[in-house]
Computed example of a mutant assay.
Amino acid sequence: MSTPRHVKVLIIGSGPAGYTAAVYAARAMLNPVLLQGIQPGGQLTITTDVENWPGEASIMGPDLMVKMEEHARQTGAEIISDHVSSVDLSSRPFVAETDSGVTYHAETLILATGAQAKWLGLPSEEIYKGFGVSACATCDGFFYRGAEVVVAGGGNTAVEEALFLTNFASKVTLVHRRDELRAEKILQHRLFENPKIEILWDHEIDEVVGTDQPLGVTGVRAKHVKTGVITEIPCKGFFVAIGHSPASELVKDQLTTQHGGYVVTKPDSTATSILGVFAAGDLTDHVYRQAVTSAGLGCMAALEAERFLAEQLVTP
């Protein structure tokens, strides 16, 4: 068994929150160690064009994450390709076990493990991800100006996405497998009153259809849940809006969570229910879920970790 590594700041996760935290912690001379996890770069690595990152009129998601990783390395952060299998938050220093067998003892811990959109699990959905299939209207709605789009879902997320997409799309079809929505009544009222939105009740998406050259969506096939009859809906964009799952498995039994697993932080802070443990990015954010807000929370987490260490009088 290898000797445990003692670090002042351990960052778990490598999306915008994790890399930003690494930059700030490194600039504070805290020698942070960032463990990338099984998907280095997070959700942006499966995003094509990003047009809402300040300073970049248009950049590919994977390219943006490469730049963020390089920035973190240049500031002095140690970035390691490894996956954390368990953490023990019962006492400080906190203990993190990894798949490689290395154990980390951390004076402070910054959790930036993110969240994953829930998908339908269709093979055709997988083919067109990033090429007409999306799980984020705020991120990608702009690309469908004047086009017809389809949204799948029936909760708040689906209704909010459908309403947002009317700012760009010529028509929005909401496909829901039941005969009534689960969304809040005020949201339903706005949906029903919007002339751009059409609802297809009692249907579920059976297949996404499109072209290979170039790769792109041309429509979806929706199946009636009772009769099995297929309805073809032409569209250029298909948005899956059935919710997100925060990647909180490591800490869900040790930290306070809400809304299905999102880590709770104190107001105007990234501090969690355990002193010295901070959480940032989509792991805590069930409202905005944007790269830029994740980065801001990563900055906050690093600054708060620095302040916490100073108050604890931790020596190098």
Rank of each mutant, 00 (worst) to 15 (best):
Asp49Met: 04
Val314Asn: 13
Glu198Ala: 01
Asp179His: 08
Ser245Met: 07
Ile59Leu: 07
Ala301Ser: 09
Thr157Leu: 00
Thr231Trp: 00
Ala222His: 04
Pro195Gly: 07
Ala72Ser: 09
Glu148Arg: 10
Gly13Pro: 05
Tyr144Pro: 02
Ala302Leu: 10
Asp88Leu: 07
Arg182Tyr: 07
Asn31Lys: 15
Gln39Trp: 05
Gly146Lys: 14
Lys171Asn: 02
Asp282Ile: 02
Ala247Ser: 12
Leu297Phe: 12
Gly37Gln: 11
Gln36Asn: 10
Asp99Leu: 12
Pro214Lys: 03
Arg73Phe: 03
Glu161Ser: 04
Phe94Met: 04
Val251Cys: 06
Phe164Met: 10
Ala77Pro: 06
Leu309Thr: 13
Leu313Thr: 12
Ile46Tyr: 02
Thr138Cys: 02
Tyr288Asn: 02
Val50Phe: 04
Gly237Ala: 05
Trp201Leu: 00
Asn52His: 09
Trp53Asn: 07
Val151Gly: 00
Met1Arg: 15
Thr98Lys: 02
Phe131Trp: 10
His244Lys: 03
Leu30Val: 14
Trp119Ser: 00
Ala117Met: 02
Asn31Gln: 15
Lys8Ser: 15
Leu303Cys: 05
Leu215Met: 14
Val263Arg: 03
Gly55Trp: 08
His176Val: 06
Ala302Phe: 11
Tyr19Gly: 02
Ile59Arg: 09
Asn31Met: 13
Ile12Thr: 09
Val314His: 14
Val102Ser: 09
Val150His: 05
Gln116Gly: 10
Met65Cys: 04
Phe168Tyr: 15
Thr113Ile: 01
Gly228Asn: 13
Glu70Leu: 09
Pro267Arg: 00
Thr284Arg: 10
Val287Phe: 08
Ala162Thr: 08
Glu306Asn: 13
Lys8Pro: 11
Leu283Cys: 01
Phe131Met: 03
Phe142Asp: 04
Leu34Ile: 08
Ala25Met: 13
Lys185Trp: 06
Ala158Phe: 06
Pro40Cys: 03
Ser81Val: 12
Ser91Cys: 05
Ser124Thr: 14
Gly132Trp: 01
Thr265Asn: 08
Trp119Asn: 00
Gly146Arg: 13
Ala135His: 06
Ala96Glu: 09
Ala117Asp: 11
Arg221Cys: 00
Ala291Cys: 07
Phe239Glu: 01
Ala112Thr: 12
Ala222Ser: 07
Pro316Gly: 12
Pro267Phe: 02
Gly101Cys: 11
Thr20Cys: 01
Thr166Asn: 03
Val87Ile: 15
Phe143Met: 06
Thr256Asp: 15
Thr166Trp: 01
Ala295Thr: 15
Ala26Asp: 12
Glu306Gln: 14
Ala305Leu: 11
Gln43Arg: 03
Pro267Met: 05
Ile127Glu: 04
Ser14Trp: 07
Val277Met: 01
Arg145Ile: 03
Arg289Ser: 06
Glu311Thr: 14
